[in-house]
Amino acid sequence: MEPIIIEGTPKTPTVKFNAAEGVFEIKGRSIPENSVEFYKPLVDWLDNYKESPLPKTVVNIRLEYFNTSSSKCILDVFKKLEAIHKAKNEVEVNWYYEEDDEDMLEAGEDYESIIRVPFKMIEIVE
């Protein structure tokens, strides 16, 4: 599978999905007006990856800001990961948040409570 590599912009995150390594990363700001347009290719890609995933998939989410429209798309990404996990593959989500950013920590906890995949909350200390 071809990896996805998208450079970040002021409104959209850097994305690196590498099927050969089983490491996926979303990093930066995700505040586009039309988040579906941005996330649909990622969700479709995960749909393919889901067919023959590696025994272990690691997902690093390191967002500075995301809007509510992205929050639904990020949930769609996690739902694909949940399906991979349910099919007896190891999936680990590392949810990074900046020091004192309780809102970002809470956002991670929201997903953790909805999605049945192990989450690790990691505080970034400057």
Binding site: N34, V36, T68, S69, S71, K72, D110, I114
Partner: peptide, 16 residues
């Protein structure tokens, strides 16, 4: 709302 409502045709998520 995050878990149950779809994004509207206008593009809003109803969460703002």
């Amino acid at each position: 709302i995050l878990n149950h409502q779809r994004i509207s045709p206008k593009g809003g998520g109803g969460l703002g």
